[in-house]
């Protein structure tokens, strides 16, 4: 995995490692959700909605200088925490870095029993959507190069 992504992941793992109690871990996750780059209201559209989550999650991405930047929101605070973790890992990475990323870190932060990728928490759908954005930007850029 690319070094920068690994660093981001390690940083998150360290933050969670400070807490043994599940309640503290969840409180941290909820706090992290509050710092997620918030999606502008006009982008809270149906097309930016990630399907397959029990709560609503909007995810938007922009491509700037070869790097991808995400913004998101959710009506559930734990879900917002989850998407904020992913954004912290991926923000400012290149499409290739995002596409090649291995995402076992959820296990490593000690939330494995709580946040396994399921349909209801939407973790799988979120990662898939982020990788799709990366793929789209990559394809678009390649098409641009050809022109």
């Amino acid at each position: 995995m690319e070094k920068e992504i690994r660093n981001n992941i390690n940083q998150i793992i360290n933050e969670f490692a400070g807490f043994d109690d599940w309640m503290d871990k969840y409180n941290l996750l909820i706090e992290m959700g509050k710092s997620v780059p918030v999606i502008e209201p006009q982008y809270k559209t149906k097309s930016n909605l990630i399907s397959g989550c029990q709560s609503r999650v909007w995810l938007q991405a922009k491509y700037d200088g070869g790097k991808v930047y995400f913004a998101a929101d959710s009506d559930a605070v734990i879900t917002k925490g989850i998407v904020s973790l992913l954004i912290r890992v991926f923000n400012g990475m290149t499409p290739d870095e995002i596409l090649n990323a291995d995402l076992d870190f959820i296990d490593e932060i000690g939330l494995k029993d709580h946040l396994s990728p399921t349909r209801s928490n939407g973790l799988t759908s979120m990662i898939k959507q982020m990788k799709l954005y990366a793929m789209a930007f990559k394809v678009k850029e390649k098409a641009g190069e050809k022109e």
Partner: peptide
């Protein structure tokens, strides 16, 4: 409180 959040905490 979103039902998903409530259910997640209750499960804990």
């Amino acid at each position: 409180i979103h039902p998903y959040d409530a259910g997640t905490i209750l499960d804990q």
